[in-house]
């Protein structure tokens, strides 16, 4: 019973009750569990390869300080070396001979190297942000290509979805014609036919049309979404017919009625569908996995999933690529948070 009381009694405004503590405890745990993993990913993605291999890991991207000397192309690792007078100085490790290290002073590189035992020196750690993790995948793994493919698929299919679905919804809601109700029921009856149930024949259709390994093979099949038609039709039903009749009297063509009157008035529903379409296409995985088998046509999700198999030891790239895939969604979410949450709550779409 105490749980239920905990869940219902936050309404009164007296001082913090035990139930309020439980509530905020739950919420705090929620923040840690829901945000924590993504935050950990973000922090890890900035670490250098060697910093990622440290165990136990640190939260901030700490790494050993390195110094570049004029005559050497590679940076030398910096250590704190005891100088015999009870103090330590920062010296760069030039060479190692067994347990002894030869250290040189970065300020006086020409001076003779100092010898010190390796177990007496301490590595100097500093904040090292590995921006290369982000830049390298773009150059080396055609990640820019995947990004472009994903953008193309997302934008084109969202535009087409909005156009095609709204045209259909306009006819279904504002005309009476033979077969209208049959069409609507037909569309509705497939509301729950997920792509996973028709994978093979859908692949046959795409193959027959010569669309395998083409981004159009990914774009076209999911365009005629039953959910989109349903959502837009329900919304357009609320637009008064008088507006359409008036426009027709003024000599507007049907196409003009559609784009000048219906579309602007259906904006809220279009916005919801648009946001969802972007989310669906950007995150799509199973269908592209089947249609696209050549690397140059991969979307971001496919590229990422493929690399996670191949680059298992190269987490520094993998994490940065994951961050780049995640970033657009987070940006869109922060900008449109209210639209998305009310959109889901009012339509039950996802």
């Amino acid at each position: 019973m105490s749980l239920i009381r905990a869940l219902t009694s936050t309404r009164d405004q007296r001082s913090m009750h035990i139930t309020d503590w439980l509530t905020y405890g739950f919420l705090l745990l929620g923040v840690v569990l829901m945000f924590g993993p993504a935050l950990w990913l973000a922090a890890s993605s900035l670490k250098t390869k060697s910093a990622l291999q440290e165990f136990p890991p640190s939260f901030l991207p700490m790494g050993q300080k390195e110094i570049k000397l004029a005559d050497k192309p590679d940076g030398l690792p910096v250590y704190l070396v005891p100088n015999g007078a009870g103090q330590s100085v920062e010296l760069a490790l030039q060479r190692r001979i067994g347990l002894i290290g030869l250290f040189i002073d970065p300020a006086k590189p020409e001076a003779d190297p100092v010898r010190a035992k390796m177990d007496e020196v301490k590595p100097v750690r500093e904040l090292t942000v590995a921006w290369d993790n982000y830049a390298e995948p773009l150059r080396r793994f055609r990640f820019d290509r995947f990004l472009g493919n994903s953008l193309f698929v997302t934008i084109v299919s969202t535009v087409l979805t909005l156009l095609v679905n709204s045209m259909c919804a306009f006819a279904l809601s504002k005309y009476s014609f033979r077969g209208r109700d049959a069409m609507f029921v037909f569309i509705l009856s497939t509301l729950m036919v997920p792509i996973s149930v028709i994978l093979i024949p859908a692949f046959l259709v795409v193959t027959s049309l010569g669309l395998t390994n083409s981004l159009w093979g990914v774009i076209l099949p999911p365009i005629a979404t039953p959910t989109g038609v349903f959502l837009l039709r329900q919304y357009m039903l609320t637009i008064p017919d008088e507006l359409i009749d008036a426009a027709r009297m003024d000599g507007a063509s049907e196409w003009r009625v559609y784009w000048r009157i219906i579309m602007p008035l259906a904006m809220p529903a279009l916005a919801v569908l648009g946001i969802f379409s972007v989310m669906w296409r950007w995150n799509d995985f199973l269908w592209p996995l089947i249609v696209l088998s050549r690397e140059e046509s991969f979307t971001l999700q496919l590229g990422l999933a493929t690399f996670q198999g191949e680059l298992d030891t190269q987490w520094h790239y993998l994490l940065a690529m994951t961050m780049m895939t995640l970033a657009p969604v987070v940006i869109v979410f922060t900008l449109l948070q209210r639209h998305i949450t009310t959109g889901i709550a009012s339509t039950g779409l996802k």
Partner: peptide
Amino acid sequence: IKGMAYVFVAPNMIIFSVFVALPMILNIW
């Protein structure tokens, strides 16, 4: 004007038939 209804429905219904309805039937085959 009446005929335009079919024109508006056409793109959606064609894509729908080719990529959803047809596969549903083919799946049985």
